[in-house]
Amino acid sequence: MLSELTIGQFFPGRSPLHRMDPRVKLVVIFTYIVLIFVPQNWLGLGLGLAFLLTGVLLSQLPVRLILRSLRPILFIVLITSVLNILYIDSGTVLLQWGWLKITTGGISNAVFIALRIVALIVGSSLLTYTTSPTTLTDAMERLMSPLRVIRINVHEIAMMMTIALRFIPTLMEETDKIMSAQKARGADLESGNLLQRVRALVPILIPLLVSSFRRAADLATAMECRCYHGGDGRTRMKQLHVRRSDVCYLLATAALLAAMILCNLLLPSALI
């Protein structure tokens, strides 16, 4: 079922990672995402993975949950690995069969890139798993507040994100329901050529659209009833404070960045 997707889900808790200032967490994780593309050799990647492992430990989340976040991208990882193995021809030849050639270089490259993708996804799921969506948008709003100078309404962007996050599960559930209802009227969603399949989506997309408009109208009323009038004069229940531990995390991230760049400069690249 669609509603079983775990990406973007928040798991409440009181771990160090949960309690990290969300602005700091955003900066750290975004830096990390950039960082994971920096290393050209195993030592650099190892540093990145060690950093990630620290993050996983700090999150105190069950490993099973973290592995589950990888399920949707398993296919991509596999494809890239296979392509790497088949196309890269360097190092010792391990197996040759016609034009197919598997080499140590190919395997090493495949593993390297697969690890990079996995590290990327696990890192970003750590962010969404340990930060409530509202806190996340709140942090973005505050981090982006300098943009107000160039007349960007940061509050509205953040509000839209909050609402989108709130309604994604509701609309997924709704999609499930509409699909069942149309199937009960004989809608065939599984067979036919591309055009027929696209056409078969109309009975699902239109009710979904209509329902989204209805929900939007209701929500707008509800928000007005609760005195919503944009970002001016609005206070926030959650106050954000950068603590000493947050400064440590920032410094550690900076140190990691420096270390990775150093690795690249001093060691030969492992990638072909």
Partner: peptide
């Protein structure tokens, strides 16, 4: 379903007073 603004219960309840 259509009148809760935030994903988390307490953050939703805070919406009015915040405004």
């Amino acid at each position: 379903d259509n009148q809760l603004v935030s994903t988390i219960v307490q953050e939703d309840v805070a919406f009015g007073p915040e405004n």
